[in-house]
């Protein structure tokens, strides 16, 4: 399985380089315009999106029809994509930690606490997005899968912003800040369950897939 993860990491290496340049650009912007949360969001989501890129590379090169001739089981091929998802999401989140601390050193408009809880929520969102999109990509391919992905991102974003703008109208009582913070920190761990379910579903889809 390590071999397959290495293959994907080598394949997306170029994309990762561009992502780092973009991140640096956003950091400069953030420095002048005080946009810490945007940097966090961009970095984590971009990291996770590389898993999708790896699917696109596989599809373009018709890798699977070759991968299945190697001494590696279908289950391991799928497992490698999920381990890659975790590695990229956790990797992006961890590599952002010193950046967040640095931000806090220069300006204190966002507290470290606030940025870290945001990092956790975005990592959780990224894991949820991957949990939904990996089986979709396996079933429908990356071309059709993109439309589903759009829906997967757009619908929750729309729904959340609708709720948050109408909190007063619907007389929703929000939990305390302390509870929200706890929920935020726990969010990535809660997402391990959908990720596990998604993995089992993907194994089922891939077991019957032909190339």
């Amino acid at each position: 399985m390590t071999a397959l993860i290495m293959k994907d990491l080598y394949a997306i290496k170029g994309q990762m380089k561009s992502a780092i340049y973009l991140l640096l650009f956003f950091m400069v912007l953030a420095f002048f315009f005080d946009m810490g949360p945007i940097v966090v969001m961009f970095a984590v989501l971009f990291g996770s999106l590389q898993v999708m890129t790896s699917f696109a590379f596989d599809e373009m090169s018709k890798w699977d029809k070759y991968g299945l001739t190697l001494p590696v089981s279908r289950r391991k091929i799928i497992a490698s994509k999920y381990v890659l998802s975790l590695l990229l999401t956790i990797g992006s989140a961890v590599s952002l930690t010193p950046i967040i601390l640095l931000f806090n050193l220069f300006f204190r408009s966002f507290s470290t606490d606030e940025l870290f809880s945001m990092l956790c929520v975005i990592s959780a969102a990224a894991l949820l997005m991957l949990s939904v999109s990996i089986p979709i990509f396996l079933k429908f391919g990356t071309q059709k899968g993109r439309f589903f992905l759009f829906a997967v991102i757009f619908i929750p974003v729309f729904f959340t912003s609708f709720i948050s703008e109408n909190v007063a109208r619907f007389s929703i009582s929000l939990p305390s800040v302390q509870t929200l913070k706890l929920l935020a920190y726990g969010a990535p761990f809660f997402m391990l369950l959908p990720l596990m379910l998604s993995y089992l579903l993907s194994i089922k889809i891939y077991a019957n897939k032909e190339f």
């Binding site: 071999a3 290495m6 080598y10 018709k62 029809k65 070759y66 190697l70």
Partner: peptide
């Protein structure tokens, strides 16, 4: 599959990979 070598009509590896990168992960398989 340990004993088989397969060649298709194209090279089915992501085109951003180099020969030595391919060697590095294939050697683990």
């Amino acid at each position: 599959k340990e004993e088989i070598g397969v060649v298709y009509d194209d090279l089915p590896f992501p085109e951003t990979l180099t020969g030595s990168e391919i060697e590095k992960f294939m050697s683990r398989l």
